[in-house]
């Protein structure tokens, strides 16, 4: 099994390690609920070095990314910024979701770990048309520092230039990239650098008040924020409309050709199922695969969990379009009432 550079550090913090797509990763360091609250109320640090980093080089890197990515990287070119979007196939099915960073003119992609092989093949397949090279980076890691007090931690380690970044901005400080991005719905930063710097940053963050947070809390945090998880909430069989991700397909520049564009334009959004947030009114826990019914049709739970913040079960679901604001979910032998809400659960708090 693959280990991140900080494997031993996780063990020394009491992590329970699990196999996550071939990587041995910390699932929790005790209680995932305590870790969740730590990020919502204070600050936590995650080792997410299992995620894939690719660097794109060549004169036409921008043209290449504008062609393979649903969002238009022209918006971030030469701007030191990050842009979220999708890799679409020719049918507008979702190959993966990812972030493209542009830092000091160089482009970098961070994407999921389970999709590494297929993404790499996809990148290479189209790289020659644009005369760019795409390189998988295996000597760098990623730390996420997330929570309302993440600014203090980042300021202490990297100074004010990094800590004062606005959302989706990034900067390089002493060879380390710091970006104001994250997957928790809290103010936070992601730090990408060569492995040799990771331990020092990890330890400095912990000395500054950050606590190690495992992947289990990362999942409840992202679900409360309404962020889709690739493989659970989306895959190649669905298009952006069915995932609440229509906004990641940038059609502003009519002259821009990109993979999946024609198929996407041929889809009528109103014919597609839609992604919604669901709240269970009764006790119980929503789980992936549970069937939903409502007055105009049916649907399926994609992600479901216990929300530590709301203290009830929440989920993401894909359902037939309806104006109804409630429905029913089948849990084992019972039909329970659910409320249909925006997936941005945090805004309800």
């Amino acid at each position: 099994m693959k280990k991140t550079f900080l494997y031993e550090d996780h063990l020394s913090h009491g992590a329970k390690m699990v196999d996550f797509s071939g990587w041995s990763m910390p699932i929790n360091y005790g209680s995932q609920i305590d870790e969740h609250h730590q990020v919502r109320n204070d600050v936590g640090i995650f080792d997410v070095s299992h995620m894939s980093i690719f660097k794109i080089s060549g004169q036409n890197a921008e043209g290449y990314l504008r062609y393979i990515f649903s969002n238009d990287v022209k918006k971030i070119s030469s701007k030191n910024k990050a842009l979220y979007g999708l890799l679409l196939n020719e049918n507008a099915g979702i190959i993966d979701d990812l972030i493209v960073y542009c830092l000091e003119g160089d482009f970098m992609i961070v994407s999921n770990c389970a999709t590494k092989e297929k993404n790499e093949a996809w990148y290479q397949r189209h790289a020659s048309e644009f005369d760019v090279s795409v390189e998988y980076i295996d000597n760098e890691g990623i730390l996420a520092v997330q929570g309302p007090n993440s600014i203090k931690v980042i300021e202490k380690i990297f100074g004010g230039e990094a800590s004062s970044l606005n959302t989706n901005e990034c900067v390089k400080v002493d060879g380390v990239m710091i970006a104001k991005t994250g997957y928790t719905g809290e103010e936070g930063f992601e730090v990408i650098c060569e492995n040799k710097y990771l331990r020092k940053i990890w330890n400095s963050a912990i000395e500054s008040g950050a606590k190690p947070i495992g992947l289990a809390a990362r999942d409840t945090l992202r679900l409360e924020a309404g962020f889709c998880l690739y493989g659970s909430d989306m895959d190649e069989s669905v298009n952006p409309h069915a995932c609440g991700l229509t906004w990641t397909v940038d059609l502003n520049d009519e002259d821009r050709e990109f993979i999946g564009k024609q198929a996407f334009l041929n889809i009528n959004e109103r014919d597609e199922q839609k992604m919604i947030g669901i709240l269970l009114k009764d006790k119980g826990i929503l789980r992936p695969g549970y069937e939903i019914t409502h007055i105009d049709g049916k649907g399926t739970v994609l992600s479901g969990t216990f929300s530590p913040t709301l203290k009830k079960s929440i989920g993401l679901a894909r359902v037939d379009r309806t104006v109804e604001q409630s429905g029913r979910v089948k849990i084992r032998n019972k039909e329970l009432e659910i409320e249909f809400v925006s997936p941005r659960f945090l805004k309800k708090i």
Partner: peptide, 8 residues
């Protein structure tokens, strides 16, 4: 199991 949140 980890943090237990519901028992029937």
């Amino acid at each position: 199991l980890g943090d237990i949140v519901f028992i029937e």
